[in-house]
Amino acid sequence: MDPVPALAELVTALQNMVSRRISTFDPIALSVTQLQAGDAVNVIPASASLGATVRTLSQESLDIVRAQSKQLARASRRLTDAPPRWISKCSTP
């Protein structure tokens, strides 16, 4: 199966999560900054991945974003019939 449509759906879902599911009184900034899916233009890639950053004002918002992002990743991966692989790293400036 082609993982690219699932990745594209996930990017859209993440952006919608920020604008629709998160309180405007405790805002977050989510930036999808990296997409990767194969090296050849004429071959369906075996996998696809994205990189993103999240900035929040509270730990509670960060926990919500992490949980909802993981849930969205699982849902979008169902399009490819492949188990989701979720890697999350947290750091502070």
Score class of each variant (00 low, 15 high):
residue 30 L to C: 06
residue 19 S to K: 13
residue 8 A to N: 11
residue 87 I to Q: 13
residue 62 L to E: 07
residue 21 R to C: 14
residue 3 P to M: 06
residue 24 T to P: 08
residue 28 I to E: 00
residue 64 I to F: 14
residue 88 S to W: 15
residue 76 S to V: 05
residue 19 S to V: 11
residue 41 V to S: 11
residue 77 R to P: 00
residue 52 A to T: 01
residue 12 T to P: 00
residue 38 G to C: 04
residue 86 W to C: 00
residue 92 T to A: 12
residue 91 S to V: 06
residue 60 E to P: 03
residue 44 I to P: 01
residue 3 P to R: 05
residue 36 Q to W: 12
residue 34 Q to I: 08
residue 88 S to P: 00
residue 48 A to K: 01
residue 58 S to I: 04
residue 57 L to D: 07
residue 83 P to V: 10
residue 6 A to V: 03
residue 82 A to Q: 14
residue 3 P to H: 05
residue 21 R to G: 02
residue 59 Q to L: 11
residue 37 A to P: 04
residue 2 D to K: 04
residue 6 A to P: 04
residue 79 L to V: 00
residue 10 L to P: 03
residue 44 I to K: 09
residue 93 P to C: 04
residue 36 Q to I: 09
residue 68 Q to D: 13
residue 4 V to F: 03
residue 62 L to D: 00
residue 64 I to S: 06
residue 42 N to M: 06
residue 77 R to H: 12
residue 47 S to G: 10
residue 4 V to L: 10
residue 30 L to S: 05
residue 52 A to S: 11
residue 93 P to S: 07
residue 7 L to N: 02
residue 71 Q to V: 07
residue 81 D to S: 13
residue 63 D to C: 03
residue 48 A to P: 03
residue 7 L to I: 07
residue 75 A to T: 10
residue 18 V to I: 08
residue 55 R to V: 07
residue 50 L to I: 08
residue 34 Q to F: 08
residue 35 L to N: 03
residue 12 T to D: 10
residue 21 R to N: 15
residue 56 T to S: 14
residue 4 V to E: 11
residue 8 A to K: 13
residue 69 S to H: 06
residue 12 T to R: 14
residue 22 I to E: 02
residue 68 Q to M: 15
residue 77 R to S: 13
residue 65 V to F: 03
residue 40 A to M: 11
residue 40 A to C: 08
residue 22 I to F: 01
residue 11 V to T: 08
residue 89 K to E: 15
residue 52 A to H: 03
